[in-house]
Every structure is written in C-alpha cells, then in structure tokens.
Amino acid sequence: MTEPNWRNIARRQLLIRGAKAAASIAATVGVARWLYDPKGPGAKKEEAGFSGTFAKGLPDFSVPRKDGQVLSIVKGEDRAKTVNKAIELLGGIERFISPGDVVVIKPNVGFATPPILGATTHPDVITAVVKLCYAKKANRVIVTDNSINDPASCFTISGISKAASAAGAQVVMPKDSYFSPLTLEGGSLIKDWPVYCAPFAKANKLIGIAPLKNHHRSAGSMTMKNWYGLLGGRRNVFHQDINNIIAELAMLVKPTLVILDGTVTMMTNGPTGGSVSDLKKTNTMIASCDMVAADAFGSTLLNLKPADLPYLSIAEKAGVGTVDYESLKPLRAEVT
C-alpha cells in the first residue's frame, strides 16, 4: 500500500463516518424529542390503570314517548302470546323497530340454571321478541349478557343460546376487550368503571328482558337490576350500595323497551332460587318504556310495595321514570 492512497482513503472514510454519525445523532435526538415526556406518568387512573379508551357513555336507544302508551300489563300463561299482546298495546313493534335496525336484546343470563328455575330470562320470551324484530326487517338481532357464572354454560343451560340462534339472533359472549372504562355524569359510583360497551357500539335499539325475581340485597331484581350485567370488573363491590348502583345503571342505560316477565315470579331465595318451590305463578307480562314504572308494578307481584325498593325512588328523583305507575294509565289485557 502506498502513502498517497492511504491519505485519500482517510479523507473519504472520515466524510462517510462523519455523515453516518451525524445522521445517527440526528435520529437519536429526533426520537428522543418525539417521545419526550418531561413530567412522567400522572396521577390519573385511566392513564395508569385501564388500557381501554375512555368512553363518554352509552348511546340513547329510547324512542319518543307517547302518553298513555308507556306501560302495558297482560295477563296470561303463554309467554309468546302475552309478550306479543303487551308490545301491541304499546303501539306495536313498529313503534320500536324500524327496517334495518341493529337490535341488542339484553336478557338476564346471570346463572347457569335451567329455565324451569326462573333465575334467568325465559327462552320463550327471547324467541318471541327476536321474531318480532325480524318481522319488522331488523338487520340484525344480538343477544348478549355478561354472566356471573361461566358465560358459555349460562347461555347453554338457560336455553337462551338455543332459542336465540333458532330465531336467527346472534349470541355474543362477553370478552375482556368488550369492556371500556366509563364514567356516569352525575353519578357517584360508576367512575372509570369497565362497562360492557362494545356489543352496543353498532346497535341502535336495545331491549331489556328480565325475569321477575326476589333479590336478597335489593328486594327485587327486575328490569333495572338487569343492567347490572353491563358492569365489568369486580362489580360485586357495588353490593355495598346496591340501591344507588341500580339507580345509576338506570341513568346510564336508556333502552328502547323493557320487558318484565312475571309469568312466574321468584318469591324467595333470590336471585338464584334453586327450587321450583321458590316460584309462584303470577301469569303477568309487562312491557314498558319506563323502567321505574315497570319495576314498581313488578314489586306488587313480589307482594311488596314500591316503597320497599329504595332504588325506585332514587331513580325517580334522577328523572329516570315514575314510581306511581297507575298515573301512567297502564294498558291492561288478558290473553288465553
């Protein structure tokens, strides 16, 4: 190797290295500035805790109110007939479902118990309502709940999975990713709490269908308590303040329609029951645009007064509905 050659190499090498080094430094500084976080993590929990996005609330699914067509009470043993009649009295399914709607049906599928025990929504009601929705050309009907026991077992054993699928509805089981932290405006309990939101994201109608049950903590589990199924996380902490959480849930959820199935009422040992001797035939189906009124009437089937269910008056004060259901002039009928 000769000397001049070496000098040229030296110069070229220096330029190349210098350029590469300069580019690396520029890249380093650029990345550092881009990701720069002078303060570090804050005290807020949504930043440190949940990874989900912060949702403002659930959409409003309700339809315009029509005085005199708020609450219907139908007597009869056959659930398919009574529920059809009850909805007809309120103005027919066309008042609630328009062609192309995506409907979510939220039954109570809390437990892995057979329909005969009355702890879960009866599959016959699901079938009837799904059929009604499709009769009015609903695009899609989704049946979903966040069960207490293992969801797959609950949906199967309760007979809801089979009934819903047979009627053409899509059964959606809960997944961790379906929950988003949510804060109820004006609420004190639902704060940054994971709520079962995803299945409702693309829906525009929501029908709650609840069995009529005695409840150890809240005296009654009906259409309002049914929304407890939307809570995720370790929701059992809310049992410390059951009446307020039920009222807050009712503030959070604005359904199109609620159906309370009092064909059979669980009078004792709720909300799980376990024996048919806990049940009583009350042969009543209630459809309502007012959850408070529906539950207030339901309490009478439990041999209680609305005043025995403190969450009713809390919800009424929050503007959710009316405890004095008679003032709404309920529509009554009987089918055989």
Binding site: I25, T28, V29, V31, L35, Y36, D37, G40
Partner: peptide, 22 residues
C-alpha cells in the same frame, strides 16, 4: 422507551452519552 413508548424527561442525560458514543 421501548416499554412505555415515552422518554421520561429526567433521563435526558443519557442522550449525551449516546451522542458521545456515536
């Protein structure tokens, strides 16, 4: 940075070490 996708401010001295190493 890899775990949090953020560059925590007080660690900025490390940039100097990186540059000098380059």
């Amino acid at each position: 940075i890899v775990s949090t996708r953020k560059f925590y401010g007080p660690l900025h001295c490390a940039i100097g070490v990186v540059i000098l190493t380059i």
